[in-house]
Design a protein around this nucleic acid. Sequence first.
DNA 1: TGAATTGTTATCGT
DNA 2: AACGATAACAATTC
Length: 298
Amino acid sequence: MYSRHIRIGRGAATRRVRSGHSRYHLAMPELPEVETIVRTYRPRLEGRRIARFVSRWAKQAQPSAAAVRRGIVGKRITRLWRRAKFIVADVGQNEHLLIHLRMSGRFEWAADEDKSKHRHVRAYFDLDDGNRLLFCDSRKFGKIIYATDLEAETGRLGVEPLDSDFTTKSFQRVLRGRSRQLKPLLLDQSIVAGLGNIYVDETLFAAGLHPLTPSDRVTPKQVGGLRNSIRRILRKAIRHNGTSFDWIYPDGGMERHLKVYGRTGEPCPTCGTPIELLRVAQRGTHVCPRCQPCIAAK
DNA sequence: TGAATTGTTATCGT
DNA sequence: AACGATAACAATTC
């Protein structure tokens, strides 16, 4: 077992990567991680009836803990799927349980013998097969939502990047129609849904684009490259079960394939120039200054 | 101890 | 006014 330490900014927390019992946990579930979770839990959740729901931190339940309980208890989960970073459980005609993990949310089984994972239990679901599903979330930013109108919850989300309607042509219309820095644009869930800090940095590097590039300065060829990079990297990340920096996603393997994220100061895999850490849209942002030249605004 | 962490939303500025 | 950038916020960790 090895660990790698990464510093972000002056005096920032040290991250221990791929360390078995790390207590430095900075999980950031994005589309590939949520997809992995859905695939992992689907066999044990689809077809199950929810016998009990208990909320221990009511603010995370919407519209209220009581409304979630009334909405889902006694209902059968007919389908578990994903929309952007939402986990969606269909529990009836026009009835849905949506879970957003935000920064630190995760599922655990109460029966798991490793009880060290059972800290920060904020809610749990008892199933008709006797299993108890825990919702753990140290930062309490996650959301548990009961919705009869799915559109009201997800209607503002943009295109699914892996869907066929995410085309270079449609993406180009979006980029050309405004002048906005690429990184905040890609983080905006109402445009392309599901990207977060890790995959935005990775896709911009793959496309050779600087995060501050104004969207209307991106050439048609570059738009195609960026769109293809987004799809290629997300698919690859899903294939590797997402990125795991810690115990929250113990089985992910994508972190070994990240080229700039979390690699400040390390040589760029393409040209050897040290990876730089910038702050863009309040986020730690990793770039190769040579492969991703900065382009001025119009 | 205060700075760092993310996605969403409110507010500021041009 | 409309849009883009920025700050605030949720709470926790060391």
